[in-house]
Computed example of a mutant assay.
Amino acid sequence: MATIRIHTTQNVTLEYEVGSIGDRIVATLIDSLVLVAWAVLWGVIFQSVGSGGSHETTDWSSASGIIAIIIIAFILAPVVFYSLASEIFFNGQSLGKKARHLRVVRLDGTAPRLGDYFLRWLLRIIDLYLPFAGGLVAIITIAVNGKGQRLGDMAAGTTVVSTKAPAGLLPDLGPSLPLEGYQAVFPQAADLTDHDVALLRQLLSRSLQQGNYVLLNETATKIKQLLHVQSDMSDEAFLRTVLRDHAHVIAAG
């Protein structure tokens, strides 16, 4: 599987496996099934209401225009905004992406912003829903781009990566030192004890293997509180940087 190196604004390099076209297609199909299930649910509800009540109370054609618009908007809103809302509230993952262990990340290592998710969502119209194309634009763009980016990703500065650890291989969380001339981003990392570092490696490894981003966020939050630092880096990038800084500062001292 292709890999991509992400150089963060703190001069740290992270390496990810790019989400494969096959996994992204399956994730899209899963998300489509979720939306189809939503539509079927409402179809069943309307059919049940229409067949269970009197003609006067179930004649939808006599409903006022405003009520009809509200009902239609309520039904269509999740269909239209599903992708945008799920990626915003679930750390770059829809249900389909979570099932296939995929996640949206920025190429500079920081967490995607609301505007990034909005651009990806807006350009889905061209990438996936262009008439007579049927997603070919996205497939071709991802195949030739080399960074796993469709048009929406290129505009937003994002890509989709795999969160699965390669079979039989744990994430590289060892205390390897940065390149010569490296300066610690968080020198406070030296305050971590050996026990803290061992626990941090264990939690980071577990959260990445399991795709548990709640645990990843909680770990990053705890480390920030412990070191009294702030960062706009993604949780994974922050924790990897802390480990690298700890190894660097301890070796230099």
Rank of each mutant, 00 (worst) to 15 (best):
I66P: 11
A68R: 14
A68S: 13
I69H: 11
I70E: 14
I72A: 14
I72H: 06
F74T: 13
F74Q: 09
F74E: 05
L76V: 15
L76Y: 15
A77L: 15
P78D: 14
P78T: 14
P78M: 13
F81P: 06
F81W: 14
F81I: 13
F81M: 08
Y82Q: 13
L84N: 12
I88E: 09
I88F: 11
F89L: 14
F89S: 11
F90N: 04
N91L: 14
N91T: 11
G92Q: 02
G92M: 00
G92D: 04
Q93W: 10
Q93R: 09
S94K: 07
S94E: 05
L95W: 10
G96N: 03
G96H: 03
K97S: 11
K98Q: 06
A99C: 06
R100G: 08
L102K: 03
V104D: 12
V105R: 00
R106L: 03
R106T: 02
L107E: 03
G109T: 01
A111K: 05
A111V: 02
P112D: 00
P112R: 02
R113T: 13
R113G: 08
R113C: 04
G115M: 01
D116V: 00
F118Q: 01
L119Y: 00
L119K: 01
R120M: 00
R120S: 00
W121M: 03
L122R: 01
L122V: 07
L123H: 12
R124T: 00
R124D: 00
I125R: 07
I125M: 08
I126L: 15
I126F: 14
L128F: 10
Y129R: 11
Y129S: 09
Y129G: 10
L130Q: 06
P131A: 01
A133Q: 15
G134F: 10
G135N: 07
G135I: 07
A138I: 09
I139V: 15
I140H: 04
T141N: 14
T141P: 12
I142Q: 06
I142G: 08
A143G: 06
V144C: 08
N145K: 08
G146I: 01
G146D: 04
G146R: 05
K147I: 02
G148C: 07
Q149I: 03
R150G: 06
L151I: 00
L151M: 02
G152V: 04
G152S: 05
G152L: 05
M154W: 04
A155M: 11
A156K: 02
A156N: 01
G157N: 05
T158N: 09
T158C: 06
T158P: 07
T159S: 07
V160K: 03
V160F: 02
V161S: 05
S162G: 04
S162F: 01
T163C: 07
K164R: 15
A165L: 13
P166N: 05
A167E: 11
A167V: 08
A167T: 10
G168K: 02
G168W: 03
D172R: 01
D172M: 06
P175M: 09
S176A: 12
S176L: 12
S176C: 07
P178R: 03
P178F: 04
